[in-house]
Design a protein around this nucleic acid. Structure first.
Lengths: 243, 243
DNA sequence: CGGGGGTTTGAGTCCGTTCAAAATACGTGG
DNA sequence: CCACGTATTTTGAACGGACTCAAACCCCCG
């Protein structure tokens, strides 16, 4: 009776296959049972908010199934999509660890199952198993490196290159390879969100998409993307690595 | 016989005033003595490299005095200045924690004293005092938030606004207030580095600086910046927050 | 005194933004 | 199932900003 996200109903976290891949893998069986007793699992509908910027951090969230968008906005209404979170990802640790209010918001991009673990439970687990803290440390360090890489790309890539790069990343998660070697991608995001991920306007993104079609790199139809020659995307990013 | 960076010779880390302000503050007296015995303090000259991208991570560094630039570059020779590090800051934890090679490089922007703590010592301290790990966790989480904020700014601010924002940040660290209320800043960076911090070319930065002078916001002379009305910088950033 | 790196300035071009309008997709209720 | 209103996406035209390439300038250091 397996669930969508890999969990098995009745066995709680112990049977959750995601546990192998995230920071909770260092918990003992007893600690895992403690975790299972103290978390709240909940289903979110498409577009539903998981947490919002400005509200206090009462705990952390663990994605079981679905895709979650992490956004950050400023006082003038601008917003960027910082990253996407997938099953196994833990959200909201920053606010909790620093005891601060949320500085970003999380939204379910599709029907999603997400577990909530309150502050006390996290604290208790951190106290009992110091290794858990180190696991989180590794996770945050990885996220930090991702953010730094993004800063470098934003500063040096053209919008077109940034978008192609984004397509490649999304392809890894959401893409499928057809029998003829071409790849098909179902975009989990609106053009607006895609544009905000590469730091530009949606109108500009529209034109970039138009140019990619003209150049035969990819075909766009709604949220479906076809890439006949996957290698052409890679070629886009390294303009002249020929030497 | 106080040293430049707040340390007192002979007492090692125990007498180091920086200890109060960074992650090492949670160490016991004994642990601190252990740390002091196992670190290597060294003086760097202006422009000297502390570590480079691609080399293995043998330990972490703690800035005692001076200013350090953290840069990240790509294979095509582009590079951005990710951040500046000051006394009390710990460098190079990412590579060490993840057991990976360095992905950024660190350069002393002026004569700097920096302590090196090797992998074994860090590991040993982390094992003995789990709170140290949590301290690092808080530090990395803060850095991550900074990086995310920068991503938002890069995506939404104009180059001019980004530079003004950078000036405000540098003013906090390197600025002095004159008797007439105006502020004077000694830039620790070249125009090239300043430009890379806001993700643009040095030519563009030159023009931005020219325009700021035209508008009477600031006067630039070499690496010295005069700002007659400090509030004018703040006004630049919120374009029209008036009702 | 002669490099050499850093900085400024110029001209031309391309790219991205803005504002506006049209076209398309989407969800809801009839 | 269709009509309708709404949100999203595309397209257009004009404008401004930023980039490229290039040359001149400056200043520090050998």
């Amino acid at each position: 009776m397996a669930e969508q996200g890999g969990g098995v109903s009745g066995t709680g976290c112990l049977g959750c296959s995601l546990r192998q891949r995230n920071e909770w893998c260092v918990l003992s069986e007893e600690e895992t049972r403690f975790l299972a007793r103290n978390l709240k699992k909940r289903q979110y509908r498409t577009g539903e908010t998981i947490f919002s910027a400005g509200e206090p951090s009462h705990g952390i969230y663990c994605v079981v199934s679905g895709t979650v968008a992490i956004r950050k906005g400023d006082s003038e209404g601008n917003a960027v999509l910082l990253r996407l979170a997938y099953p196994g990802d833990t959200l909201g640790y920053r606010g909790l660890l620093l005891g601060e209010k949320r500085r970003s918001c999380a939204e379910a991009l599709g029907p999603s199952k997400i577990c909530f673990i309150d502050k006390q439970t996290v604290q208790s687990l951190l106290d009992r198993n110091p290794t858990l803290g180190l696991q989180f440390l590794r996770r945050v360090a990885t996220d930090l490196d991702d953010a730094h890489t993004k800063l470098l790309h934003n500063a040096t890539f053209s919008n077109r290159a940034k978008f192609v790069h984004l397509l490649l990343v999304l392809m890894n998660r959401h893409g499928r390879t057809a029998t003829d070697g071409s790849r098909v991608l179902q975009l989990p995001l609106s053009r607006r969100d895609l544009a905000s991920m590469i730091g530009t306007r949606h109108e500009t993104l529209s034109r970039i998409i138009g140019r990619l079609e003209e150049d035969g790199i990819a075909r766009f139809s709604g949220r479906t993307v076809h890439v006949a020659r996957p290698h052409s995307l890679l070629d886009e990013i390294r303009p002249t690595l020929v030497g």
